[in-house]
Design a protein around this nucleic acid. Structure first.
Lengths: 342, 342
DNA sequence: CAAAAAATTTAAAACGATTTGGTTGATGCA
DNA sequence: TGCATCAACCAAATCGTTTTAAATTTTTTG
């Protein structure tokens, strides 16, 4: 059913009907109610594509999905989707080439100028992120999930990675650990740098020298967690504690520790960052995993919220949200062994 | 830049330009080439929403995302996205209420009639799935990922769950196992039923009685894997082997086995289904996990392909694809222990 | 009660493409 | 040459809304 036909059945003009449904003030309350009721009864719904054309709005938020299939991505998106339920806004997923950054910048450029989305979300930014510069230049609305030092105003939502890892590391030092390894995220990303900083600051505060041989930067997979942990544990003296970037990494570390005949929580302490997954929980690991925790799903939901505000006219420079991260101690952390030299 | 303006600069009519860009035959090769080049040079691109309005096509495929944040979802979508790169088709994600099925049917109905998507994908169907009946009734294009017995013609892509689990179970029987537990997916879904059938048939073939106390149906999480495995292992005689629905479930089972002081691959054999994740690999587990394997990412890519064919006019009843599943034996399976009664 | 102001409603003009139904001019054929 | 055919191009209608500017009706005011 089209607007024209629907309006005719109501004995009104298309104009009035359109306004009634969009909630404009210059329509009497009585008429509005009648229109709303009849719309439901007769099943009239505006053609979305006509609306998009005339308003210039796409009714969608763009998300670029890395080819490496990050597992936390689904949680984030699910949180977004949940929040967007009821709003008339969709989520649009674009694949990324994921090779060099040029490709990705081109992708964002296409996405922004394609008219398919009203805003995009930038994930895992770098301190100096070309995507952010580009989007700003295009004057296209976007929210950064993470942070960047790019010197243009932009909206962002991030968790306190630095503080979380500083506290985690400090705690390990308090427990007597001196050789603390860190398996961090991909090099160059701001969140990795923040975690690096938290780690190094904690060491420095207590006068423990930083040893680059105890630090790795890479994707979050159990295999890489295992490999790095294995190789670190071969050092002499070996590390007595690990700080890890993800649950998957932690799984790898647990395996590596076991494979050396050592025991997590006694010989080697582990703290990992937990994005809170319904299918893999830190509490259930054996031994239960001490973690810095922040819900990816909640971040997704809040991101959707903030994008909505951005589209509603709120200034990007006003939208900065830094979430604290919990540190939850469980069995995987314990006092440093006194016989750390095997 | 709009079509009219762009056409004027070329000294052509909008009609010809539009046709040149869309590859219609009634434009000379010379003109087409010139138009294409100038479009790039001057940066002309058709307004997507105008195209959508006039053609009635949305240029997007809809995917409904469960609230439970299934981890394999990201892989599937990433595969789709990869395949759709280059095509002018987006992926649109809708959240699902995930409560009762009525809500979900309503969601599919809204999605199909909203004009936002040209086709949708139905995940984890039931044998008699209302969503399929609805979409068929609406005459809306859709692809089922999985299978259903719903008696309307529909396109589907599925893996051979039944065969995979039958072979896995048979193999365990060959190894001498007699009490084989099964931690399956959510009850009622076709894939779970197929796996049940494969399991039961394998038992029956060898004259092993089916024991309902050794079977569970639930979500794929490590916690549930652990809990069910724990409780099964408390039985006497306890099971000597597990068939599990997912990698996460397998993680839970490994923990449960260890927590009883038993050893996977010696005291208890485990085979799980592996959707092939970059961040968690069966080969890297300790002991390495025997698995029935089929790539979710590949399924996503092929799904995108098939939807494209469907939209291209291929009949839904012609599109049926059943993928074989590999059985990969590793260290987690071994001969049944002779001293199975502790 | 008439004029002014306010509240409703409407006709028609966008929005920016595709597509229908021609119109040209060149070529082929008798 | 004359006529039909064909390749190449174009003017105008169309998709289904929203929105601008104007017309109508109703209410208020002096």
């Amino acid at each position: 059913m089209k607007l024209k036909e629907f309006a005719r059945q109501l004995g009104l003009s298309p104009t009035t009907v359109s306004r009634a449904l969009s909630g404009y003030p210059e329509v009497s309350e009585k008429t509005r109610k009648r229109v709303a009721e009849e719309a439901v009864r007769l099943g009239y719904r505006p053609n979305i594509n006509a609306v998009r054309l005339v308003t210039g709005r796409a009714g969608a938020i763009g998300v670029v999905m890395g080819r490496t299939g990050e597992f936390h991505f689904a949680e984030y998106m699910s949180g977004m989707a949940e929040r967007l339920d009821g709003e008339d806004i969709d989520i649009l997923v674009s694949p990324t080439a994921d090779r060099d950054l040029t490709d990705e910048v081109a992708l964002y450029s296409r996405l922004a100028t394609s008219g398919r989305v009203d805003a995009v979300i930038v994930h895992s930014p770098k301190p100096n992120d070309e995507r952010i510069a580009l989007l700003h230049e295009l004057g296209f609305p976007f929210l950064v999930h993470g942070r960047s030092e790019t010197d243009v105003p932009h909206a962002w939502l991030d968790i306190d990675n630095e503080g979380a890892i500083r506290r985690a590391t400090s705690h390990l030092i308090d427990l007597g650990h001196r050789r603390i390894a860190m398996i961090n995220g991909r090099a160059g990303r701001t969140f990795s740098l923040h975690r690096d900083k938290g780690y190094r600051d904690a060491l420095q505060e207590r006068g423990i020298p930083f040893d680059p041989r105890l630090v790795a930067h890479d994707h979050f997979t159990d295999e890489l967690g295992f490999r790095y942990a294995r190789s670190f544990l071969e050092q002499s003296p070996r590390p007595t504690a690990f700080v890890a970037g993800s649950m998957m990494t932690a799984l790898g570390i647990y395996r590596a520790v076991r494979s050396r005949g050592l025991v997590v929580g006694r010989d080697v302490s582990v703290i990992a960052h937990d994005d809170v997954f319904p299918y893999l929980t830190a509490d259930n690991m054996v031994p239960s995993l001490s973690a810095t925790r922040s819900s990816m799903r909640a971040a997704g939901g809040r991101s959707a919220d903030l994008v909505l505000q951005l589209l509603g006219g709120r200034a990007a420079e006003e939208i900065h949200e830094l979430w604290p991260v919990e540190l939850i101690l469980r069995e995987s952390t314990g006092p440093a062994p006194t016989d750390a030299q095997p």
